[in-house]
Amino acid sequence: MKKSEKEKGKEKKATESKQQYKLIGIIAVVAVIIICVAAYLFVFNPPLSVAVGDTINVTYTGMFDNKTVFDTNVNSSPLTFTVGSGQLIHGFDAAVVGMKLNEEKTVSIPYMQAYGAYNPDLVGIVPLSQFPANQTLTPGEKLYERSQDGSIAIVTVVNVTNAGVAI
Rank of each mutant, 00 (worst) to 15 (best):
V37D: 06
A39T: 11
Y40Q: 05
L41K: 08
F44W: 08
N45I: 08
N45M: 06
P47Q: 11
P47H: 10
L48T: 15
L48N: 11
V50H: 09
G53R: 08
G53P: 15
D54Y: 07
I56C: 06
N57M: 14
T59D: 11
T59K: 08
M63E: 01
F64D: 07
D65W: 14
D65A: 14
V69E: 06
V69P: 12
F70T: 07
F70V: 14
T72N: 01
N73D: 04
N73F: 06
N73E: 04
S76I: 05
L79H: 06
L79M: 08
T80D: 00
F81L: 06
T82R: 01
T82S: 03
V83R: 04
G84V: 15
S85D: 11
G86Q: 10
Q87W: 06
L88W: 07
D93Q: 01
A94E: 06
V96Q: 00
V97F: 02
V97E: 01
G98L: 05
M99Y: 07
M99C: 13
K100D: 05
K100R: 07
L101T: 09
L101R: 00
N102Y: 14
N102H: 07
E104C: 00
T106H: 00
T106E: 00
V107E: 00
S108W: 12
I109D: 00
I109Y: 01
P110Q: 02
M112H: 10
G116D: 03
Y118L: 05
D121P: 13
L122A: 15
V123R: 06
V123G: 12
I125M: 03
I125D: 01
P127Q: 12
P127G: 09
P127E: 03
P132N: 08
Q135K: 01
Q135C: 03
T138M: 02
T138S: 02
T138A: 01
T138I: 06
G140P: 02
G140I: 03
K142W: 15
K142C: 15
K142L: 15
Y144G: 04
R146L: 04
Q148D: 12
D149T: 13
D149M: 08
G150T: 13
G150L: 07
S151L: 10
S151I: 14
I152K: 00
V155G: 04
V157N: 03
